[in-house]
């Protein structure tokens, strides 16, 4: 009898829709900061609390800002890549130690290696908010004029570094004319 098949048919249609629904990614978010000047901050460095670093100090350079924390699990994933990249001395990486304790952060760098030219301490996360930090780790590429050219949410991968970050570095890291 056909009517007993009806529930099965209805359910089949439902599954098809849910399957298509699954392919839609609600997390695809562009950053409104790309193309805008990097928000200013003035924070003390991790290594030396008396030294203060601001983005203005890096004018004329292309640099990476990497948001990390000792409590961040995914940061460990990208960390070896950062350490390796730092060895090439292509561009400096500045760390933004986000909502972290200084001692924990220093111990973490001792253990996993320190790829950062300097790390600044954003203990209350205020600077993170300015940068629209969404989930640690995040990485920003900032050009010689202090404009954000790229932002990545989540761990940096070798592919992303090669295919997305490096071309941008080549494009923006030109000798000042």
């Amino acid at each position: 009898m056909k009517r007993f098949v009806i529930p099965l048919v209805v359910f089949g249609a439902l599954v098809v829709f849910l399957a298509i629904g699954l392919t839609r990614d609600p997390r695809e978010v562009p950053s409104p900061l790309v193309g805008k000047p990097a928000p200013a901050f003035s924070l003390s460095t991790l290594a030396d609390p008396t030294r203060v670093l601001t983005p203005a100090d890096l004018r004329g350079k292309v640099w990476l800002l990497n948001v990390w924390a000792s409590w961040c699990v995914a940061c460990r994933q990208e960390h070896p890549l950062l350490v390796e990249f730092a060895r090439t001395h292509r561009v400096p990486i500045i760390g933004l130690d986000y909502k972290d304790k200084r001692d924990d952060a220093l111990a973490w760098l001792m253990r996993f290696g320190n790829p950062y030219a300097a790390s600044v301490v954003d203990a209350d996360g205020r600077t993170g908010i300015e940068y629209g930090v969404y989930g640690v780790p995040e990485t920003f590429l900032i050009d010689q004029e202090g404009i954000i050219r790229y932002k990545r949410i989540g761990p940096l991968t070798a592919e992303a570094l090669r295919d997305e970050v490096m071309p941008l570095i080549r494009r923006y890291d030109v000798p000042a004319s």
């Binding site: 098949v5 529930p7 359910f11 599954v15 849910l18 699954l22």
Partner: peptide, 23 residues
């Protein structure tokens, strides 16, 4: 997404199977 795919597959198997048995 992997989790979603797994649950949906499982849902299809269990519910689809039982509705087929019902039919």
């Amino acid at each position: 997404p992997r989790r979603g795919v797994f649950i949906l597959g499982f849902l299809a198997l269990v519910v689809g199977g039982s509705l087929a048995l019902f039919a």
